[in-house]
Design a protein around this nucleic acid. Structure first.
Length: 451
RNA sequence: GGCCCCAUCGUCUAACGGCUAGGACGCCGCCCUUUCACGGCGGAAAUAGGGGUUCAAUUCCCCUUGGGGUCACCA
């Protein structure tokens, strides 16, 4: 315990596509493990393939991590470490572990190139994997695999082997699609005289279509979920519990709890299928726990787009919308859609609707007119601001509603105020729009019912 | 196909060889409710199949079946 080296973990994404769920989970586990042991978490961009790598993906990856609150302690880039690889390739060449080979180019067979191959004399390589135990792989059919296109152009396995050792990575946690790469990397490390790190291969996440998550397969980029209005904590939480399970039955994990609880020995062996419905549930949990200010920030832009006159956004309306969103745990994207399609317009302007909307099932026009008239009279007895809050108006109208039937009394009132089949309660609406506006809308409804 | 790996409700999963196989999402029902939701309560739902080992298999071993990963001068 005393002399164990500090934990250093890393993710090694290649900037060749958007940051997707699988990589995000790997990043999360690496981060959690490092933090749990007071260690360091690094991001190392594997951009040795200059043809496919693109800086814009680097920023996508970094933004995703930052959104998820997974903050790297160190960020490096392999393309800036050519000299390190050159030195190691030279060592392999000098020690006879590697050799230059002149052969036809794979890309263009008419051309001849000189590549560098590892001289493979092993039969079996075995290593201990935290999740699966000892894995032994026959490497003889690997042959002398290519480790660099040239002295200045290392390939993936060489760069990884060198970096994991040189950077002192103690624990490699990565997707289990890398299992078959591991023996190659270990071979190179041994040839270089390095001690391989500890390996933990995490089963992949599958999409709903089956098969591993891939860049081309779609909409599972982390930033997409941000755009669609998910809360980052919920995304993290959903990821956390895909392929890992706690000792107890806790489901909702703030980041600190994750750090506390995480351990490698409870990683699942089987691949996991990601379901958005579960994420949606987590999202509800998180939205319901969010402070109002955070929700307001999410909702404000859409509101301002719909109602460009800022003065129309009075604080009471805003807080009513925000509270509704929080209580119901609504997905932000849905809130924006609703604002966009006019679901909240009645807070600002008198609604426009067809008269039949005022009449609940099984009632007729005359009854509705009577009930609404009575409601109008009752509300008129309130003067000034006192007694106009939602609780008071509810108390005021309840006895009459219970006598006549709640749906005959409350439905026409609510629809008169909102002009919508679905809306907040009439009492909440009245409180927000005020007495004057309330009375005007009821009068409008009565006029419509008169025809 | 070769090699490697995996297998509990539809999904995510729990269960040091010994329980009515537990929880969560989703689904269904009921309750709450003027509406839509939120919420509360309840229900259906699983150890892939076949052999062993054992007093006892979800748990250990083998086979079958099914699934996944990987086989680059990509990462």
């Amino acid at each position: 315990m005393k002399n164990t080296p500090p934990v250093i973990t890393r993710i090694a994404p290649s900037p060749t596509g958007a940051f997707h769920f699988g990589t995000a989970r790997t990043a999360l586990y690496n981060y959690l493990f490092a933090k749990k042991h007071g260690g360091t978490f690094m991001v190392r961009f594997e951009d040795t393939d200059s043809e496919r790598s693109d800086r814009s993906y680097e920023s996508d990856i970094l933004q995703s991590l930052s959104w998820l609150n997974i903050s790297p302690d160190v960020i490096t880039r392999q393309s800036e470490r050519r000299s390190v690889y050159r030195g190691h390739i030279n060592r392999l060449l000098a020690s006879g572990h590697a050799y230059e080979s002149r052969e036809p180019s794979k890309k263009d067979p008419s051309q001849e190139v000189v590549v560098i191959r590892y001289k493979n004399t092993e039969r079996n390589v075995s290593f201990k994997d935290t999740v699966r135990g000892t894995i032994t792989i026959d490497v003889s059919d690997l042959g002398d695999f290519v480790i660099a296109r040239s002295i200045d152009d290392p390939l993936y396995n060489l760069a990884v082997a060198v970096d994991d050792c040189v950077m002192g990575i103690t624990h490699v946690l990565r997707g289990d699609d890398h299992i078959t790469n591991t023996p190659r990397q270990i071979l190179l490390m041994q040839a270089l005289g390095y001690q391989p790190p500890s390996y933990t291969h995490i089963p992949l996440i599958h999409g709903e279509g089956g098969g591993k998550l891939s860049k081309r397969k779609g909409a599972l980029s982390v930033l997409d979920f941000k755009r669609r209005g998910y809360v980052s904590g919920a995304v993290c939480n959903a990821l956390f519990l895909l392929g890992w399970s706690p000792v107890d039955e806790q489901e909702v994990f703030p980041l600190e709890d994750m750090v506390q609880a995480f351990s490698l020995d409870r990683i699942q062996k089987k691949e996991a299928l990601f379901r958005e419905k579960k994420l949606a549930w987590f999202n509800r949990q998180y939205v319901q726990a969010l402070p109002e200010a955070a929700i307001r920030r999410e909702v404000m832009p859409a509101l301002l787009r719909r109602f460009p006159f800022r003065s129309l956004l009075n604080p009471r309306v805003l807080s009513s919308i925000v509270q509704g969103v929080r209580e119901q745990g609504t997905l932000f994207a849905d809130v924006r859609d609703r604002i966009q399609s006019g679901d909240y317009d009645f807070f600002f302007i008198p609604p426009v609707y067809e008269p039949p909307l005022l009449i609940p099932d099984g009632e007729d026009q005359k009854q509705v007119r009577q009930s609404l008239t009575r409601v109008q009279e009752l509300l008129a007895t309130r003067s000034g601001y006192r007694g106009w809050d939602a609780v008071s108006t509810h108390e005021l109208l309840l006895p009459y509603a219970e006598k006549e039937g709640k749906s005959l009394v409350f439905w026409p009132l609510r629809t008169a105020l909102s002009g919508r089949e679905k809306s907040p309660s009439p009492f909440d609406i009245m409180e927000v729009i005020g007495k004057k506006q309330t009375m005007a809308r009821i009068q409008t409804a009565l006029n419509l019912l008169r025809e």
